[in-house]
């Protein structure tokens, strides 16, 4: 929350920072928040409490399908443990799946590939477009989320998502992770472990992958590991024909 005092202090800090250190671009305005490129580019730096997510950052994932081990589900286990996704319903199609492994077989040559699939954190997300209440939203740093207080459970976003990334919570929930609110009747999907990212950590799936197949970082920062990899190897955006500008990229498919 911004107050007049805070804004004045920010103005002073910004002016001092720009004048003395000459560090990068600083944008400041009443009602907006101080943004410093140097700070934003730090891929795993914690976001300060009370400050908004920075539009200078675009969080993303690069997944190397060549390294994804067949049959391995460590990323799924880690995700669902981290986010408290534990319900097991009689009809498995009603279970929430924030991340899943997909096995692909190329029809032309029979080549097999496995990869994890989750919310692709589109820059132009169809789920956000169609949400009647604005509960589906894209944070300034590119993370696509669902506001659990305003989701009415209409499932229009599930109809609109080209990646089948979203789930409806079909039952009442108990024993949730306090950092990851979930609720019956609301739609949910991968949050890119936003609660960890805001603390300067990487998503649970990335951390759990024994093969190092997943890289997390700021796509906007040319010096970040993810940006360097994307600049040096061919990568793919799934359903790139839709021009959704995905935050999750794949290598090896």
């Amino acid at each position: 929350m911004s107050t007049p005092d805070n804004n004045a202090r920010r103005k002073f800090i910004a002016a001092a920072g720009a004048g003395v250190a000459g560090l990068g671009f600083t944008a400041i305005a009443p009602g907006l928040h101080l943004m410093a490129v140097g700070e934003a580019n730090a891929a795993t730096e914690a976001r300060k409490a009370g400050t908004a997510a920075s539009p200078a950052v675009r969080w993303g994932l690069l997944i190397d399908a060549n390294k994804c081990a067949p049959g391995c589900t460590k990323c799924i286990d880690a995700c669902h443990t981290e986010n408290g996704v534990s319900e097991k319903l009689p009809d498995p199609r009603q279970n929430s799946q924030w991340i899943r492994k997909i096995e692909l077989v190329d029809r032309r040559n029979g080549r097999k590939t496995e990869l994890p699939m989750m919310c692709q954190h589109c820059a132009n997300p169809p789920c956000v477009d169609v949400c009647p209440t604005g509960a589906s939203m894209k944070r300034a740093d590119g993370i696509v989320l669902v506001d659990r207080h305003t989701c009415i459970g209409c499932r229009y976003c599930m109809m609109a998502c080209p990646y089948k990334a979203r789930s409806l919570v079909h039952v009442p929930l108990t024993e949730q992770n306090p950092e990851v609110p979930r609720g019956q009747g609301c739609v949910e999907s991968c949050t890119l472990c936003v609660h960890r990212v805001d603390k300067g950590q990487t998503p649970a799936c990335v951390e759990s992958c024994p093969e190092g197949a997943m890289v997390f970082g700021d796509l906007n920062d040319p010096s970040s590991a993810i940006a360097k990899r994307i600049a040096s190897v061919p990568t793919t955006q799934v359903r790139g024909d839709l021009r959704l500008d995905l935050g999750v990229r794949y290598q090896g498919i």
Binding site: D129, T133, T150, I152, C154, R155, G185, C186, V187
Partner: peptide
């Protein structure tokens, strides 16, 4: 609706692209 009790939210939160 998954949250039929929140129908009023649909009236108080408006997304013009939807």
């Amino acid at each position: 609706l998954g949250r039929a009790d929140r129908i009023i939210v649909a009236a108080t939160h408006f997304n013009p692209t939807s």
